[in-house]
């Protein structure tokens, strides 16, 4: 009996989701205990209840949803354009040695540059418009993605290319039908890095930017809350930022992998 109980106990703890919920519960418990001890002012550490209440009222008023959609719209625009540019750069590098040099030089210069460092310059160039934020997102996505896609192209077995030539595919057909699907594991790795960088850059840029017109995005939402000393509102915004990060990394990208490279038995 004891053995079986121990087994069940272990199985429960092997379940990753359970472990995560378990530690989150512990964390929330400690949080609430600190709050109840009144060691800190509620302005610094609000109770979980007020955070949830603030989240609820901000969701209800539509403000939090509007800002979230605004941020997501910007990042997906940037991601989309970034993906197209990356694939183009990687393809050009693959076709021509001269372009390979150009892309390598550009990447060497731009890759170490944090997107947010470009902000003053971009504001000068594009003004304080949403275009500027999209530009920063594209910058955050393009370099890691182009780099990964290109190393994916280069890692492709030699026979794939020979098969493409043997079956009389043009160079564009080889890129489209063979190189892109064959380098998908690398592309997805690049996308993960690109997404993480873009998401961070977006939130920072929004904070510095403030509202351009009606909306300012999630970054501006939490920054505004500070001005009003609305600490529960800040935490509510932070929770949404974390949730979206988790959702995209663990649901969107993982499912993309399951539907493609894992189904096909491909990995790096």
């Amino acid at each position: 009996m004891i053995m079986i109980a121990k087994d069940k106990f272990n199985k429960l703890f092997i379940n990753k989701i359970f472990i995560r919920i378990f530690w989150m519960a512990i964390f929330m418990l400690i949080w609430e205990m600190i709050y109840l001890s009144h060691s800190f002012s509620p302005l610094i550490l609000p109770s979980l209840g007020t955070i949830l209440k603030s989240m609820y009222s901000n969701l209800l008023s539509g403000e939090l949803i509007k800002e979230t959609l605004y941020s997501l719209n910007l990042i997906f625009k940037g991601l989309g354009i970034g993906i197209i540019i990356s694939i183009t750069l990687a393809s050009l590098s693959f076709v021509s040695k001269l372009f390979e040099g150009l892309v390598e030089t550009l990447t060497a210069i731009a890759h170490p540059l944090p997107g947010i460092a470009l902000l003053p310059l971009i504001i000068l160039w594009l003004g304080a418009t949403p275009h500027a934020i999209v530009f920063i997102i594209i910058h955050s996505v393009v370099w890691p993605l182009a780099l990964n896609t290109y190393s994916g192209f280069k890692s492709i077995p030699k026979v794939y290319r020979q098969i493409g030539e043997n079956y009389e595919l043009s160079i564009l057909q080889i890129i489209y039908h063979i190189l892109i699907p064959a380098s998908l594991p690398y592309f997805l790795t690049g996308l993960k890095i690109g997404w993480a960088r873009a998401w961070r850059a977006l939130i920072s840029a929004e904070m510095i930017f403030g509202a351009t017109g009606e909306n300012g995005g999630l970054g501006w939402f939490i920054f505004k809350r500070r001005v009003f000393m609305d600490t529960p509102g800040i935490f509510a915004g932070l929770i949404v930022i974390v949730l979206i990060g988790i959702l995209v990394e663990n649901l969107v990208i993982v499912n993309l992998e399951k539907l493609t490279i894992r189904k096909w038995g491909m990995s790096i």
Binding site: V159, E165, N166, E168, I178, L184, T260, M266
Partner: peptide, 20 residues
């Protein structure tokens, strides 16, 4: 002078099929 459909190569490698 160039690869053509009239001469098709079958390789030794098992990964000559496209996994996707």
């Amino acid at each position: 002078t160039a690869p053509q459909l009239n001469r098709i190569m079958v390789f030794q490698e098992f990964d000559q099929l496209f996994p996707w």
